[in-house]
Design a protein around this nucleic acid. Structure first.
Lengths: 241, 241
DNA sequence: TGACCAAAAAATGTATACGATCTGTCATTT
DNA sequence: AAATGACAGATCGTATACATTTTTTGGTCA
């Protein structure tokens, strides 16, 4: 399962060092989910994951429980852990919550953004553009999500930051399941507009752009499927060992 | 430490059965925190907790990690788990988030509340009143928090419900640390007004009442303390073994 | 008496062992 | 041939054992 273990050589210099093994595992899995290298419903065997990271089941279990708490994986008693498969209803709820919280966060971010932050965001946009140009879907998705997290960090509000982190993570799963046009990349047009508003300190504008961006994202989903179970079955068969 | 193990005989009939030992532990601890039987900063030794619940450290550890993820306890590497001690900043953030989310939740709840729900809420109010009258501070606090959770459940929105649960839990710690007048009970006046608005399906009204209630709650806190560390020391000495 | 260092005690970090539960297969029965 | 039941393999749930780190203790020296 080399899908899970990311090469992890391509990090920004001086990047975060994981002194903690279990967060190393959970972050690795989280990244894999972000980049759609792990599909919803995939089974995460404790032994298997443990072998990949060279640790015992104890630590893997802790990491899985952590992810379960963010609803990224679901743990079924005596059956094991699986990448979560958000229901249509949960998908709706996630985007509804994002539409409430993230505009507020963007507003706050516009109020305290620094020039350094702007540069960082512009770098981010450039990376997004490059990933899209290169057709690297996984990287593009991951960057797109991280863009929202970066704004939350700029807002400098730990609680909102935590919420946004949870919502963006789950959105990644929702997109994997319900995105309408598999080829279409999430256009980063509104991201650019957002950075402009932020840079000018236009709180109201940033808030509005973020709201319409979230609504836009949501409109790219097909949440009218009747039986998620049908898809579930098909998916399950497709990926059956 | 009989403080932790609640008698748990006084549950409503047909109440929730914990098939899961670790959630039994974490819920027990959570309740103890809710009712201020466990003060912020208290150390939660794995052995000690395990002995109380008659399980090994493995399960205790899982429960503590679960609570840590909700920021109810903080785990320090190689030092152990402690009941969290929210900073002034976090206290502000928690109530800011509540002021954003809970009014929205109240609005939704007003839109789909049933007669059964209303009766349940009224029961709740009565219990609150009784606890206040009896001077049972712990029960009153716990009930007051659960009132908000019950409204979130009525709104029937899992994501918001989860957020409210986290915020209310943390609020309990914030109140333990920063409440201005230790004797004053959180008056349940606004709770009554809230139930009335909900019952009438007055979404706008419920939303507004909830917002002012949250603001009111926040105004009962003293968040101007300079050094939380000073209080920390005092508290530590007071409770020092 | 007070500060400092060493050794012991206690608590946590991690791995492993064993029992319980689930899943799938295969033989047996109708 | 289909269905049922039992057995085997795999996986998870929990406890325990050992390693590592922290904290305390106790004694020595200034």
């Amino acid at each position: 399962m080399s899908i899970i273990a990311d090469s992890s050589g391509a990090r920004s210099p001086g990047s975060f060092r994981h002194h903690d093994k279990v967060s190393e595992i959970s972050e690795g899995l989280r990244r894999a989910i972000f980049e759609h290298r792990l599909a919803p419903g995939t089974k995460l065997s404790e032994d298997e994951v443990g072998e990949v990271y060279g640790v015992s089941r104890t630590l893997v279990r802790a990491a899985l429980q952590s992810l379960a708490h963010s609803d990224l994986v679901s743990i079924e008693k005596n059956r094991g852990a699986f990448i979560a498969r958000p229901s249509v209803r949960e998908a709706r709820e996630v985007f509804e919550a994002r539409a409430l919280i993230e505009p507020k966060v963007a507003n706050m971010a516009a109020g305290r953004i620094t020039q350094e932050n702007v540069l960082s965001l512009r770098d981010h946009l450039e990376a997004e553009h490059a990933a899209n140009a290169a057709g690297d879907k996984g990287a593009a998705l991951s960057l797109s999500g991280n863009f929202h997290l970066e704004i939350a960090d700029i807002a400098d509000h730990q609680v909102y930051s935590q919420f946004v982190r949870m919502l963006v993570s789950r959105s990644s799963l929702v997109i994997a399941l319900y995105w309408k046009r598999p080829d279409t990349t999430c256009e980063s047009h509104s991201h650019m507009a957002l950075v402009s508003a932020l840079e000018q300190g236009d709180q109201q504008g940033a808030e509005e752009i973020m709201l319409s961006h979230i609504i836009d994202l949501r409109s790219g989903l097909d949440l009218n499927q009747k039986a998620s179970s049908e898809l579930s079955l098909a998916e399950a068969l497709q990926r059956g060992k």
